Simulated assay, not measured.
Amino acid sequence: MKTKQILTAGAIALSMILTGCSSTSTDTKDTKTTEVAKKNEVKTIGQKSKDSKSLKITNNTGKKITVFETKSSSEESFSDNLLEDGDAVKNKENRTLYYTVKENDKLDVKVGLQDQDKTFVFKDVDTTDVKKVDVSLKEDKVNLDVTKKDGSTATLTPSEDSAKTEEEKKEEQEVKQEEKKEETAKADTSSKSNSSESKKNNTAST
C-alpha cells in the first residue's frame, strides 16, 4: 500500500514538473513572438481616418527625418509637424503615412532632416497608383524616389526655394520689402512732381 502511495505521489510530482516546464517554454515562445511582432510593427505618420489615404515611406537619407508635414495642393499652409516631439524616422526605417487631400488636388510634402535648419518642399506629388516612396539625399538635397504599382520609378526634386534656410528666406523677404518701399517712394515723388507741373501750367494759363 505504501509503495503504491509513493509511486502515485512520485507520478503526480513528475507530471507537475513536466507541466511547469512546458508552460515555461510556452511563455518564453509567446514573449519572443511578441518581441518579433513589435520589431516588425510599422509605425505611422499622421492620423488614420475614414477620408485618409496611405503611403509606404522609407527613409534612405542616412539621417533621421525630424520634420514631416503635408497639405492638399490648393491649401495655403502646411499641417503641423506630423512627427511628435522626440519622434524621428530613423535611417532605413519604414513608416505608413496617412494623409488627406481635397478632390482633384495632389499632395504637397515638406521634409526636414536632423541637424539641418532647412526643409524641402515637394509640390503636386501625384500619389495615384504609388506603391512606395523612398526619401533619399543627393548633394545635400532631399529627393523623393517614387515607385509605382506597375514597377516604374521617378525621382521628384524639391521646389527651388524650399531648400533655403529660414534665415535666407527672411533676408529675401526683407530685400523685397525694401524694393517695394523704394518703388512706392519713387511713385510718390513722380506723382508729386506731376502735380506741381500741372499747377504751374494752370497758373501760367490764368
Rank of each mutant, 00 (worst) to 15 (best):
T34Y: 14
S15W: 07
D188H: 02
D161N: 12
K123R: 14
S77V: 09
R95F: 01
V135S: 01
Q47C: 00
Y99R: 07
D140C: 05
N143A: 04
D27R: 03
D115G: 04
E178A: 14
D140M: 11
M16T: 09
S49R: 04
A204S: 15
L7Y: 08
L144K: 03
K123V: 09
Q116H: 06
S72Q: 04
N201E: 15
K63S: 15
K102H: 14
A13Q: 01
K71M: 04
F68N: 00
T33H: 04
A9P: 03
T128G: 09
I57H: 02
E84K: 14
K53D: 07
L18V: 09
S49K: 04
L7F: 07
I12M: 05
S25A: 10
S159L: 00
T26Q: 13
K2P: 01
V133Y: 00
Q173E: 14
S72H: 07
Q116S: 07
N202W: 13
S22E: 02
N59T: 09
S195R: 08
I65Y: 03
S22I: 09
D30L: 07
T8W: 12
S193T: 13
I12D: 12
T26E: 12
V111T: 02
N59A: 11
T44S: 11
N91C: 11
K110N: 04
A13G: 04
K170W: 11
A37T: 08
T184S: 12
K102A: 11
L156W: 00
E171G: 05
Q47K: 11
S22K: 00
M1Q: 07
T66W: 01
V125M: 14
E183G: 03
S79G: 13
L83D: 05
N81F: 06
E76F: 08
N143T: 04
V111D: 00
I12T: 09
K164H: 06
T33P: 01
T66R: 03
T189Y: 07
E84Q: 15
T8K: 12
T44C: 06
T24M: 06
S198K: 15
K200N: 15
D161K: 11
N60H: 10
E69R: 12
S152K: 07
K2A: 06
T147I: 02
Q116C: 03
S54H: 04
A154E: 06
K181R: 11
T165N: 05
T184E: 13
T19Q: 08
V101I: 15
E178N: 12
T206I: 12
T128S: 14
G151L: 02
K118N: 15
G20C: 05
K181V: 08
A204G: 13
E171T: 10
T153Y: 02
F120P: 01
Q5W: 03
D161I: 07
G62W: 12
E183A: 12
D124V: 08
F120M: 11
K138S: 14
S15P: 00
D126Y: 15
D27W: 09
E174S: 13
T24D: 09
N59C: 10
K29W: 07
A11T: 09
